[in-house]
Amino acid sequence: MNEVLMKVQDLSKYFTIDTDWRGKPVSVLKAVDEVSLTINKGEAFGLVGESGCGKTTLGKILVNLYSPTSGKIFFEGKELSALNKKQRRSYCKDIQMIFQDPYASLNPRMTVGDIIAEPIIINKLLPMSEVEERVIFLLNCVGLARHQRNRFPHEFSGGQRQRVGIARALAVEPKLIVCDEPVSALDVSIQAQVLNLLDDLKEEFKLTYLFIAHGLGVVKHISDRVGVMYLGKLVEIAPKKELYANPLNPYTQALLSAIPVINSEKKERIILKGDVPSPINPPAGCRFSSRCFKEFGPCKLNAPKLKEVSPGHWVACHLF
């Protein structure tokens, strides 16, 4: 169970915002800053953080939509970041992605059947005569009917479109799927259906997920381990149960307190002061120090490193 599928080491992605006349960068956005994590075979790793914390950027680096500024990516022990463009593309089919907005992620000019068939055809996974059968099989896997393959995306609801997106990701039989907030654009009632579907498919196809979400609520349902990101840095990684029972980083505590609960007299909410600082000019020392309610001496001076405080529970905070 604990076989490592993907390992990310000190991965960074900086975007140049502005350059001087020589083309030298003068302001840089550190979207992902020296993030290290491992994803084990067969698990669902939840990645949580506010908008703009770099979680989607991290996911897009893993599926080769962005190339990292620095750092290493290992997939099944092979260093992907060292491969050239062509070799890297041959790994595309092992790592797929489900996009956030099902209204934007399907080409409006292609039928649903063509959308699902395309990855099979361009990766030459099956002879043409068997493609259609496979498409029907995939449609059924995600709970759509075979006659729907000749329809266009605009004829489907948000939940159905997301199912098409899932079928497209499944079509190449990937090992890892990066789910980039796959339910955040859907109605709450549909969210549960799609989450259940993802859970079932994980068993059926022996998948591994990197599940990106902006709140801990959704992740609780599906993940085995959870990582929390803040302004491009990972601040805490722990098995799900441990994280929800014993959150250590003050930011994680604040996020947990923000999950809506039905009986209102439960725990009090931690309200953070201020806004998320700009990632172009993050606070010195610990990036959370400007909003942290437990901030003390060293926080503004140097950045904390990830430490393992109990087996499998890593936290980056000066309190520990």
């Binding site: 897009k60 593309r89 089919k93 907005d101 992620s105 361009i122 497209r168 190449v172």
Partner: peptide, 21 residues
């Protein structure tokens, strides 16, 4: 658009992305 990124993720080459997507 996301669908263009999706096309790249599933392994499309540049010219196919331009002409097909």
């Amino acid at each position: 658009n996301d669908y263009v990124q999706a096309a790249r993720v599933i392994g499309n080459g540049d010219s196919r992305i331009i002409f097909k997507h």
